[in-house]
Design a protein around this nucleic acid. Structure first.
Lengths: 102, 102
DNA sequence: TCGTCATATCGAGAATTGCCAATATGTGAT
DNA sequence: ATCACATATTGGCAATTCTCGATATGACGA
């Protein structure tokens, strides 16, 4: 399932309200201004997330990297933009594990 | 359901392997040496948990307090001992919330 | 190639966490 | 009242996290 190390990364990632917020926001990419229906599959770019979070650019980038390392989102680089979207399969697997473990 | 503040407390509590371990251990109180069947309902005392965790007494006490404040365990004082057991109802409610939110 | 834009990484200071030893508090036995 | 015991709280130091501004990287257009 999820190793101890992976669970640690997940809980650390989610123990920050801004990062948890981002994960929830990404459930509905269309809620970001200027998001086209065609972009939904690839995700939302960093600057859009940053704007909504009200954090610095570097902080936003780092937080997304933390979510990615925890396996909660996946990143896709296209041109100069990096798009982030939820890793739904892994999140489902995680919730299943949590139900087993706790 | 769970407020933002409550979720923060939960994730912070679980973002420590020792605390997560304790919560899992408490699923099976009988696995603690010297635990009587009659004690299962009330929980496990701090020193038994401490011994198993290999942490200091104060650290163990603090960690259990953090789990309690997060609503994951309940404490019962009986004589000079404090027994801790899982708050199963609240944990179930939490897992439900997690399924909704994430 | 140069400039610009989006993102990533680095460096740093303030705040928080991890964990301990020491001490305080509360309880039961004598 | 006093002692011993279980637990809680306090004080502290090292390690980590939070968050930023500054800088580096990488991609596109002129």
């Amino acid at each position: 399932m999820f190793s101890e190390t992976e669970l640690l990364a997940v809980f650390r990632a989610l123990s920050n309200p801004a990062r948890r917020q981002m994960l929830v926001w990404l459930k509905d990419p269309m809620s970001f201004p200027g998001q086209e229906p065609a972009d939904v599959e690839i995700g939302v770019c960093v600057s859009d997330i940053q704007q909504r979070a009200g954090l610095g650019q570097s902080t936003t980038s780092q937080y997304l990297a933390i979510l990615r390392q925890a396996g909660l989102v996946v990143a896709t680089r296209r041109g100069k933009w990096t798009y982030y979207r939820r890793d739904e399969a892994n999140i489902a697997r995680l919730l299943e594990t949590l139900g087993d473990v706790f």
